[in-house]
């Protein structure tokens, strides 16, 4: 009985005692009734608000203060960013669906949604790499002007958050996948996916030095085939097989993931839509890139 007294140990022991009950209890045996680990995550997110708040504030303070171009309206590509925003939004949907199915005990479906989330996050990152690359080609580097400095810092840290989230989700997907055959399928699927992604980037960015268009095309095609072959193993996996991750673990990584999404909601509005409408400074054409 005494081991109940550490709230955290208690949470763990609840999971042990009822391996079949995947849903966290509505009311935890803690002083506030809140789950200890979820409370930690929410506190962290509240703190991360201050982190991104500081970065966004620095961006806004230096808005329209650049002495030389390129200026935001000259480089920001709203159509492309709208697509990547949509991709990140959909990754939030797939995240919440993953949690729903893992909670409902449908591990196979849940696992696929976890992978879909990681994949959508990776696609978002590809867009970001493409965008950074394009900006550098248009003459905007972090050193060029205040816009470059603040823009790359803010979106770069957001991208770093997404990267960490993707790594976290992939780790969860690997742990969540029981069975040798499924795990091999997972590795093939993920490996193929990233090969295809790099290939696609090489084609569209057209400037990743050792990869010309032909190599990029080959990588894209081969990677896609491997990814589909690997995914086949996952999709046809035993439906009844229980996943060995707790829904709480997934819920916490999900909170992180959605937070990264809401940060992007703010960034998309404040940096892209609003800054891209900023008037060019007088005589910008003289300096413009």
């Amino acid at each position: 009985m005494r081991k109940k007294d550490l709230a955290q140990a208690h949470t763990a022991s609840t999971a042990q005692a009822h391996p079949a009950a995947h849903e966290a209890p509505a009311h935890e045996d803690t002083s506030t009734g809140l789950n200890t680990r979820k409370l930690l995550m929410w506190t962290f997110l509240a703190s991360d608000v201050m982190f991104f708040g500081s970065l966004i504030a620095a961006y806004l303070i230096y808005r329209n203060q650049s002495l030389v171009g390129p200026y935001p309206p000259e480089v920001l590509d709203i159509p492309i960013t709208s697509i990547s925003t949509f991709v990140l939004l959909m990754s939030s949907l797939s995240m919440v669906l993953a949690l729903h199915y893992i909670k409902a005990g449908e591990s196979r479906t849940g696992r696929l949604w976890i992978l879909a989330t990681a994949a959508l996050g990776s696609v978002f990152l590809c867009f970001q790499v493409y965008e950074f690359n394009a900006f550098v080609h248009e003459g905007l580097t972090p050193r060029t002007n205040l816009f470059g400095t603040t823009f790359f810092t803010l979106t770069g840290f957001h991208g770093a958050h997404v990267t960490f989230g993707v790594a976290w989700l992939l780790a969860m997907a690997i742990v969540a996948t029981p069975g040798r055959r499924e795990r091999m399928g997972l590795l093939l699927g993920v490996g193929g996916f990233y090969t295809a992604a790099v290939g696609a980037l090489a084609i569209f960015a057209g400037s990743i030095p050792p990869l010309d268009n032909a190599v990029g095309l080959v990588m894209f095609l081969a990677g896609s085939v491997i990814a589909i072959a690997g995914s086949y193993n996952l999709i046809t996996a035993d439906k009844a097989q229980k996943t060995p991750i707790s829904s709480l673990d997934l819920e916490i990584s999900g909170l992180y993931w959605h937070f990264v999404d809401i940060v992007w909601i703010v960034i998309f509005t404040v940096i892209y839509l609003i800054s891209a409408s900023d008037p060019l400074p007088v005589g910008a054409a003289l300096h413009g890139g």
Partner: peptide
């Protein structure tokens, strides 16, 4: 509006105990 919808529904603040909402709202 988008922000509130994501934290409310995707992050389950609408369904979870209020404590989490208070913590996050305080930070925000």
């Amino acid at each position: 509006v988008k922000f509130v919808m994501v934290i409310g529904f995707f992050m389950h603040l609408r369904f979870d105990p209020k404590g989490f909402t208070y913590i996050f709202a305080a930070g925000m």
